[in-house]
Design a protein around this nucleic acid. Structure first.
Ligand SMILES: [Mn+2]
Ligand SMILES: [Mn+2]
Ligand SMILES: [Mn+2]
Ligand SMILES: [Mn+2]
Lengths: 222, 222
DNA sequence: TTATTTTGTTAGTTTAATCTAACTTGTTAG
DNA sequence: CTAACAAGTTAGATTAAACTAACAAAATAA
């Protein structure tokens, strides 16, 4: 059996390694706000259980088994977020805290019922993909808004990472998933973007914001 | 902060003391399948925290604070059961296992949302009353079916205790909450009841069953 | 009423998950 | 290249929640 604590370490390691492929003790320590020696011994334990590749002083990686286990927890998290959002009427900035707890419930029936009632969703309320029942994470081929060019027309697909504060900022700006934006110009000094969307002809987005917004490019300058 | 483990002890003590007023270490030990010395030290800890009246070798009682705390956990349990039953389509014998886990989630918003979506229910799918937000348990003035007389007409209001096996038995017998039964006769030897309900003119219910069925008496013999 | 059984308590051990302090290894800046 | 700093590890302590073994008190049966 895998404990709630171990699940949280696996999830942290999964998200830290998602792009880079590996992570280190210090990163997990900061992410979970747990001291390094504690993380170190937990990594050894998870290695014993076959979830983590651990070698002294080397970067950490999840085994295939560990990746699957982590993805299945993330699946429960994101299904829960979607359920809270779509079926219970919570706002997109309220669902994460509750899902952090619900994700640890052991009941395949509970989560497959959610899945069914939601019509087998593929993304959570923040646009993040929901892994399938086998722990396979769907690929997303979006780009961050701060990598786009002036003149591009893009659709907002996901927010990552999605802090409560950021989500509230976006809500206040009337920016939501599916919103199409046109990039009017890019300020070279601070990389802020002037954009237009919906009934708002001029809005300025800082790079702190644009580096979290994943978009699909619809049209660029020829 | 109160741990999940402590919550389970409080809940056990609440239900064991509900009728008699007190309980003892051995009963909790059996109920939770935890050895007596462990229960003993947990009772001392809960006494330190102000939830339990503990004196060596004397029966255990909850303090008012302890009662309230326990009732609020039971509230979360029963709201969850009702939500799973009414909004997610689970059967009445499937909801308890999931609720055992969900009841420990710390999120007032989550449970008040359930409450609201359910229209502020007063009973769970097994007819057990749902305590209010202040931890006040509504009184139920039902009687057990095995205390009724031949000729009585009664309505099934609750099942207590409601094991999965019992609930499945009742479902198979087409007996559900709200069903009205007429007591045809009582067998003195084993206290089994011959009853009629719905389209079933003759069904025999053993005392093992009738001692768990709470009913409201509609009419008795004059 | 005494003996036996049941229940309750104490003492000490174990495991999981955390910590601090101290030391080692690896990385970076001068 | 070495000194300093950052990151990783080891050792040992702490707390929560469980256990077993042994003993004490209370309840029950003979
Ligand atoms: Mn989330
Ligand atoms: Mn979590
Ligand atoms: Mn999310
Ligand atoms: Mn229940």
């Amino acid at each position: 059996m895998i404990s709630q604590t171990e699940e949280n370490y696996l999830k942290a390691l999964y998200s830290l390694t998602y792009l880079k492929g590996d992570a280190n003790v210090n990163e997990i320590s900061k992410r979970l706000d747990i001291k390094m020696p504690t993380v170190n011994s937990m990594m050894k334990k998870l290695a014993d259980k076959g979830f983590v590749h651990y070698e002294s002083y080397k970067p950490l990686r999840l085994t295939e088994e560990g990746k699957k286990e982590a993805a299945l927890i993330i699946r429960k998290h994101r299904l829960t977020e979607m359920y809270l959002f779509q079926k219970m009427g919570f706002a997109w900035d309220e669902v994460h805290q509750i899902a952090e707890q619900v994700e640890h419930i052991h009941s395949p029936e509970f989560f497959s019922k959610m899945d069914e009632l939601l019509g087998y969703p593929t993304v959570d309320p923040h646009g993040s993909p929901i892994p399938d029942q086998n722990g396979v994470m769907p690929l997303e081929n979006y780009v961050f808004l701060n990598t786009c060019k002036a003149g591009d027309m893009v659709t907002l697909m996901a927010v990552q990472p999605s802090s409560k504060e950021l989500l509230q900022y976006l809500t206040a700006k009337n920016l939501e998933l599916g919103t199409t934006l046109t990039i009017k110009s890019i300020e070279p000094f601070d990389e802020s973007l002037t954009v237009a969307y919906k009934d708002r002809p001029i809005e300025v987005l800082s790079s702190k914001v644009t580096s979290t917004l994943l978009v699909r490019v619809i049209t660029g300058l020829a």
